[in-house]
Design a protein around this nucleic acid. Structure first.
Lengths: 330, 330
DNA sequence: ATGAAAGCGCTAACAG
DNA sequence: CTGTTAGCGCTTTCAT
């Protein structure tokens, strides 16, 4: 495990460092023969470039930074972790490693340290605040970055799930399977996802030639105290299915139904626009739209590296989701 | 945001690079006056050292690598994330950043890349395999590392929760609160934690002048199919409380009790030796021992940096836990 | 197509 | 106590 350097190779092969460097990096013209020789020698002797040296020379770190929230719900954790796995697997292909930093509120300290210290070439943000200081900072300092998920900022690169598409398809599927009068339990109005999921829902309803009863649309239900009352209203109005915007809302709705002795799915069906392990652990299991966050992470990593390399990129909506029909909607 | 270098400072102050370097690093003797001047100038001009350059010069990266499992249960995710937060907050104090890599089975590829590429000065492992190749690799290559949690390997540095202490105290508390005949639902026998929790349980029982009925101790209950039968046996034997070794087991036990219409805690109390959000979401909420994994992470980070700096360290058991008594044991 | 030489920014002997 | 001088290992003009 004696570290062999570019110089060793040069000497061993009787060429110059420059030649070796060129052969290895593929930049500049060299004869195929010497290139082959170099490559082979490098492989045989298991040559690994010294990242620090390369970094110093090209002022690159071959690291990207990913910011994770400090406090996190189970759902977000799972989301983040799957994303991370995608990011790592994609970026390591290009020789990049992932530096993790913990966000502490809407502040830029951690990020600033990493950037100013030159420890990363780009940043992936996985959750953004309303007026995100980090975005401002990154933009001002021309640091390459992408955002996973949606945010208000329109002129940053977003990599997101097809939230409206998934919600639309879930809604559509259930309407076609016989749901006559749907209700909707929504999330935080200020979140983009909420808007997107609402859109998808509305779209599906109108696609099926139906109309939505406004009184059956409840927003900001995450953590409110009135869900039990809302469910009563829903039933009284004759609705037969509640679409919940996320797993947490769906989980709570099911618990309340249990308490009220409302039979799911017989009296009322229940579906979630976002899946999570708790949903399939319930009795009955709750139908939900499943997204593949690893893909999200991969795309994010790919885009970021392109930006770092000066290529142009644009927003990506990952059109990969699956409508999982389970016991709660049979 | 023009990067200012050590050279700029030197020139501006009419001293040599070396002097500046010394003033900044605190190594070597310099007059307090020049040191002050340098420090002040550096602060005023917001000087940040170039990590690549420093790294190249001292062959240090000021990064540590943390390995996260690719597949992960909710529990492990939460554990890992809280640990990570601790690690980051501790190591950044010493100017270290955290590189994350994803483990894919008992392989060393990812780790090897990072180490061979010289991208990290040390490693924190958060889950170990039975005969862990990564441990072998790290040891062979003399890479500083610590393990969070317990493993079979005895001659590596472990940073772990006080699993036996927590279990002992939970058991003791409940015995003192009136539990007459405890049962135990254990986890995987090959895990160190299982042994440790068992020890704690046994200890508390004997501390209270009681004896354990062997027929009330069930091991390897994680994911078996016979838990319903076991619960019947427990009740028939007249036990009044089941101690579950982890959250998953406890959660399942509660669900089975529901199905069997066994009232918790009236007919049977239920407690877990390891806490997780699902436990307090249940009805009734399940009593459990809560550990502070952030502290675990902090200690791990601290120890690792000591090792990197050539200091001697030893295993640490973090004696911080809390017995959370909830509805399931009232 | 290849080589020589000059850095990238910092640290670390070795002198003074 | 401070400055001089070499590097660390790699990339990159600029020659040849």
């Amino acid at each position: 495990m004696d570290k062999i350097t570019i110089d060793d190779i040069a000497r061993a092969l009787g060429v110059s460092k420059t030649t070796v460097s060129r052969a290895l990096s593929g930049k500049g013209r060299i004869s195929d023969s010497t290139k082959k020789r170099v490559m082979e020698y490098a492989r045989e002797h298991d040559y690994k470039p010294n990242v620090m040296a390369r970094g110093l020379a090209q002022s690159r770190t071959y690291n990207i930074a990913v910011v994770t929230p400090q406090e996190n719900s189970d759902v977000n954790l799972a989301f983040f972790h799957r994303c991370l796995v995608g990011i790592v697997s994609e970026t390591e292909k290009s020789g990049y490693d992932v530096l993790i930093t913990v966000e502490r509120g809407n502040r830029i300290d951690e990020l600033e340290r990493i950037i100013r210290n030159g420890k990363a070439d780009g940043v992936i943000l996985t959750r953004t605040f309303f007026e995100d200081k980090r975005i401002d900072y990154l933009r001002q300092n021309q640091v390459p970055f992408v955002v996973v998920g949606s945010s208000q900022d329109s002129d940053v690169i977003h990599i997101d799930n097809d939230n409206s598409g998934g919600s639309r398809q879930m809604t559509d599927t259930l309407l076609k399977k016989g749901v006559k009068k749907p209700a909707l339990f929504g999330g935080p109005k200020e979140h983009m996802v909420t808007t997107q999921r609402l859109q998808g829902f509305m779209q599906a309803v109108s696609d099926n030639g139906m109309e939505v009863d406004d009184s059956l649309i409840f927003m900001n239900t995450q953590g409110d105290d009135v869900m039990p009352d809302d469910i009563d209203k829903v039933l009284k109005a004759g609705a037969d299915c509640i679409f919940c915007m996320d797993d947490d809302i769906a989980d709570r709705a099911l618990k309340i139904c249990h308490e009220k002795n409302i039979s799911v799915p017989d009296q009322l069906k229940l579906a979630s626009f976002y899946d999570a392990p708790i949903l399939s652990r319930n009795i009955p299991q709750i139908s939900a739209v499943t997204y593949d966050e690893a893909v999200l992470g991969m795309k994010a990593g790919e885009s970021l590296i392109k930006i770092i390399n000066g290529e142009a990129v644009h927003d990506i909506t990952v059109e990969k989701f699956e409508v999982m029909l389970r016991g709660s909607t049979f």
